[in-house]
């Protein structure tokens, strides 16, 4: 029987020959579609240790697969392919290839930490998601996110000099993320800086420290956000 639901099968597992004759019968094209088995043939015991070496992944070995993390997950509610429970299992058994198949969604964790709050074994799944995303960046499986570039630049400067220099962070960040150095807003920022004396600037910064400024034109934004959250909850739980 011809297979109609090919979309359910990973493309690399579908075998089809344009020209194939079996026992004198022409089974070319559509008629010889076969699926390679999905059998798992080995574990990689060291992979769990690798993930544990990343910040946040330390407690992945505690997991007993109850699924509380996936149940509580904000992203799972949006996309049932986003399954922390499953990825933790793959991590524990070292099924890397399976993990890599989900490389385009693992990083989508929004760090709401509901999983970490609910986990009965204190696995801290949110940290595991971070660890997995970082491992994938390090291995070149996924590109580094801009925030990772920023974090690295930020940390590098601290490591080197014990402090950070804003302009250096920005320059290197732009360079690593392929952005032009002369950006419109930055040029404008510089121009305006020169308009006032440094003393006035320092005074403003000092005042801002004592009296945190409120975002301009915040207006009804807070109310709107609250309403959105309420609607989402009602949609999810009825």
């Amino acid at each position: 029987m011809a297979i109609h639901e090919k979309s359910l099968i990973e493309p690399e597992r579908l075998l089809q020959y344009d020209d194939l004759v079996v026992d004198g019968v022409d089974v070319s094209g559509h008629w010889n579609t076969m699926i390679t088995p999905r059998t798992l043939r080995d574990y990689d015991e060291d992979f769990e240790k690798t993930i544990q070496s990343y910040g946040g992944g330390e407690y992945v070995h505690r997991c007993w697969q109850c699924g509380s993390c996936t149940n509580s997950c904000t992203m799972y509610a949006q996309n049932t392919q986003f399954n922390p429970r499953y990825w933790i299992y793959l991590t524990r058994l070292g099924l890397k290839e399976e993990l890599i198949k989900d490389k385009d969604i693992i990083w989508q964790c929004v760090s709401c930490n509901k999983c970490t709050n609910i986990c009965p074994k204190d696995v801290r799944p949110e940290g595991v998601m971070k660890a997995l995303a970082h491992w994938m960046e390090d291995e070149g499986i996924t590109e580094k996110s801009p925030s990772t570039h920023f974090d690295e630049e930020f940390a590098d400067q601290i490591f080197k000099t014990g402090r950070i220099e804003d302009s250096h962070v920005l320059m290197h960040f732009f360079k690593k993320t392929g952005q032009p150095l002369m950006q419109g807003w930055l040029v404008e920022f510089g121009k305006r800086m020169t308009k006032g004396l440094p003393i006035a600037q320092m005074l403003r910064m000092g005042l801002n420290m004592l009296f945190p400024p409120k975002t301009k034109s915040w207006g009804r934004t807070g109310e709107v956000l609250q309403q959105y959250v309420r609607e989402q909850k009602e949609a999810a739980h009825g």
Binding site: P37, T39, L40, Q65, Y89
Partner: peptide, 12 residues
Amino acid sequence: EDTLVKRPIVIP
């Protein structure tokens, strides 16, 4: 069959 990954396993 690994129940949680819904896959056949053949492990040495």
